[in-house]
Amino acid sequence: MIFLFFPIGILFSAPLFHLNIEKGSMIVTFFYSLYPAVDPIPIIFFIDDFRNAFFGFCTPRKPKNQVHSIASVDAAVDVS
């Protein structure tokens, strides 16, 4: 709403009120071009799977310690 609809609405409604905002059109163009980059951010934070994937991608993970059991057999021992 802030980056797309309000600036474009002000730009299009300014001539109705006899306002000259030629210099403001550059700001409106900037916000209009910024909108596609900013639009996915709320979706990333509201949807759990996207948020977990985003934070999993951005934070480095330390390798987990793993414990393995090892069985050794001594072939020189006589079982008799």
Rank of each mutant, 00 (worst) to 15 (best):
M26L: 15
D49L: 07
L19D: 03
I44S: 01
V38W: 07
L34V: 09
K23Q: 13
F31V: 00
D39Q: 14
S25A: 04
M26F: 12
E22I: 07
I44C: 04
F55A: 03
D48G: 03
P42F: 07
I27W: 15
A53N: 11
A53S: 13
P36C: 06
F30A: 13
F30G: 03
A53P: 00
A37M: 11
F55G: 04
I43G: 00
P40S: 01
F30M: 14
I43T: 11
D49A: 12
Y32N: 01
F45C: 02
S25N: 10
F55L: 15
S25R: 13
S25W: 08
F57K: 14
H18Q: 13
Y32C: 09
F46Y: 10
F46L: 12
Y32D: 01
F46C: 03
F50P: 00
M26E: 15
C58H: 08
M26W: 03
I44P: 05
I21M: 14
Y35R: 04
L19T: 02
S33T: 10
H18A: 10
F55H: 11
G24V: 09
G56P: 01
Y32V: 09
A37D: 11
I21N: 07
L34A: 14
E22G: 07
I47C: 04
R51K: 15
R61G: 07
V38Y: 14
D39C: 08
T29H: 06
N52H: 11
I47P: 00
N52I: 07
I44T: 14
G24C: 04
K23F: 07
N20I: 08
A53I: 06
L34Q: 06
F31H: 07
L19G: 00
F31P: 02
F31M: 15
P40L: 01
G56W: 01
R51D: 00
T59Y: 13
L19Y: 11
C58W: 09
